[in-house]
Amino acid sequence: MSETATAPLLATRSLVKRFGSQVVLADVTLEVPRGRVLAIIGKSGTGKSVLLKCLAGVLPHDGGEVLFEGRPLGANAPEASGAESLAAFRRRCSYLFQGNALLDSLTAWENVALPLEQATLLPKAEIRLRVSEALHRLELETDATRYPSQMSGGMQKRLALARALVTRPEIVLFDEPTAGLDPLRRNAVFALIAHAQREFGFTAVVVTHDLPEALASCDHLALLDQGRIRFSGTPAEFAATPDPVVASFRDSPAALARDIAALRAGAALPADLG
């Protein structure tokens, strides 16, 4: 297709996902610009992770399209090329799961080596080099023979990150990479993503709750609300838009301070909790 060169690397068009009668994604149209970091924010339970899984083809979608370089992707793509382009897509994409999804019967080293050994034809020496490089970058070289269950949550996260980056992907999908991390680690993860992104030039989609960090480190923001993209734009545009839903997100730290102050003054709890 001629639009391949100009098309965004990854995009969705009117994406619909239902679980039974529950509509999670009603109509999501989103573009992931090439070489940029896109943060998807939104309240818990609005389907951010589901959107990411549909993007990665882990979950089949019920309507609309996922486009990779302008071509439909996924198991339910209309033409037979769907499966084939999904395979091509997966060679160029990594996914960082919220729960890390490390293989618990393999050591740290084996986990990182796994995608190279199983899905590429790299020679053994090259694999060894790349794995030790990836472990070194994430300061895990002394833990190569430990199993994921013997590691702390932060180490597991770093290990999953090492596994995601070892294939030198063009797209990395991050599903809440900072969930359960302390603030320092959280900053470190965002710094790491931004740093690795500069180094390798991959395109990243980050699903996150951490608005300040996302604003500081991402090129684009998309706000998912009630199954639709409520806002999409740069951090500067995010700061300026008058949209009330965006505003409520943007101002939530200030709102918290306000509520606490009010609570101390003896007022009732705000009604719109959650």
Partner: peptide, 20 residues
């Protein structure tokens, strides 16, 4: 049980996303 836990903790999905 092992495969069920691997399914639960998204290890099987992870294999798929790695192209395995």
């Amino acid at each position: 049980a092992e495969l069920g836990i691997q399914r639960n903790s998204e290890q099987i999905d992870a294999l798929e996303t790695m192209g395995i």
